[in-house]
């Protein structure tokens, strides 16, 4: 009985370390898209592991924990995908290390609006 609580606490600790690394990547990465990459991946697994550890400590809360884990797993990639598309659409510049940009070759729909937003920023 006590061992499973200690295992749960250690799983929670590992999850929070991933959360910390994700936000460290948010500070260190050079442009918006790399920040989205590190942020999404690390926070998804970090939150899942943290909640799983809490669920191992309190086994009778398992139902809500499962719903919350599935919710985070489904919605977090969607919001990052939408944000990345919007950032490319309004013309946020990529970092100078970028090798290839296949998306820039397709014709934009309304170029004027994006240019205006970029100058204001």
């Amino acid at each position: 009985m006590e061992y499973i609580e200690i295992i749960g606490a250690v799983v929670t600790l590992i999850g929070t370390i991933f959360l910390f690394l994700g936000s460290l990547g948010l500070i260190r990465m050079p442009d918006v898209f790399n920040r989205i990459q590190t942020g999404t991946k690390a926070t998804t697994l970090g939150t899942m592991l943290t909640l799983l550890g809490i669920g191992l400590i309190h086994l009778d809360w398992a139902g809500k924990i499962i719903v919350l884990i599935i919710f985070v797993l489904v919605t977090n990639p969607v919001s990052s995908h939408v944000l990345a598309r919007a950032a490319h659409y309004i013309g946020i510049p990529l970092t100078s290390k970028t090798v290839v940009d296949k998306m820039a070759q397709k014709p934009a729909i309304t170029v004027k609006k994006g240019d205006k937003l970029k100058e204001e920023d």
Binding site: T38, H88, T95, K97, T98, V100, K102
Partner: peptide, 24 residues
């Protein structure tokens, strides 16, 4: 998912920031 998180951790901790990004 676990592999990708270890990959992210390695890239974030490394002082030289080993990235080579692009859109394919």
């Amino acid at each position: 998912l676990i592999k990708s998180n270890l990959d992210v951790a390695r890239r974030v901790i490394a002082p030289s920031l080993p990235i080579n990004p692009g859109i394919v």
